[in-house]
Design a protein around this nucleic acid. Structure first.
Lengths: 125, 125
DNA sequence: ATATATACCTCGCCTGTCAAGGTATTTTTT
DNA sequence: AAAAAATACCTTGACAGGCGAGGTATATAT
């Protein structure tokens, strides 16, 4: 078993940023949108869901997560609104738009192609 | 059918750099090493092989390719030597090292995990 | 009282990608 | 014979995503 997350990000010596990060890159948006396809949600919950779903092998860093929200909202793929919590910390909920749904479907289809492509390309035999 | 490569890289307006690029990112090194696992080769040939293997759907940009060679050589995963062509343009051949082989195997194993992980994460149902 | 969990956010650096530019030789087309 | 395309290499500079490190505020558990 390989733990994907928590590769060392050593600023002093050693390589910066793990391979795993770059392997996930390009899927962040789709992963978030996949969650919003099911129901509106907020950052903290989405991240927890990812961790649970991957048995702790992967988590989005907060900075990455919130950067992605800004990017997706700017692109018109999601819209946000504040929840009306009477207790606990406030939550900013996100909702996927029709544009976002289309983008999600496109990326999902693309993934099917790319997955097979990479399978073929990294074979040594 | 989706053409992975040749998404527009519009510097003026529109989104910069395509999703596809980011989906491949993190596999470039492994793809190159996979080719060198079979036999020594040189940049131009490796790139042609990738294009053929993917039916033209994907190609490494030259800048990306040569950047990767520098990176891999610096890391000790490959070594290079000039071919002794008597005709045609000179070729710089690359050879994978033991360290490179180990790195390749590690990335390959990682891919198997990550592929399944992404499959699960981008499901909407 | 202190620590942990929930929940949000931004700044600035790092890294891989690649457009755009270059050089030199050989083969193919006009 | 001249022009174009293919082979084959290379570097520079800008860009965008990831994320460490820092921050705020409330609620619960120790």
């Amino acid at each position: 078993m390989i733990t994907i997350y928590n590769r060392i990000h050593d600023t002093f010596g050693g390589e910066m940023m793990s391979i795993a990060s770059d392997m996930i890159r390009g899927h962040t948006d789709t992963i978030i949108l996949a969650h919003l396809m099911r129901n509106d949600s907020y950052g903290y919950e989405i991240n927890k869901a990812i961790q649970t779903s991957t048995e702790g092998k992967y988590e989005l860093k907060e900075a990455t997560l919130y950067t992605a929200f800004r990017r997706l909202e700017q692109a018109g793929y999601i819209v946000s609104y504040w929840g009306d919590e009477t207790t606990g910390a406030r939550r900013r909920y996100y909702s996927i738009t029709d544009l976002g749904r289309a983008f999600y479907e496109k990326n999902r289809a693309e993934w099917d192609e790319i997955r097979n492509m990479i399978d073929r390309l990294i074979e040594a035999d």
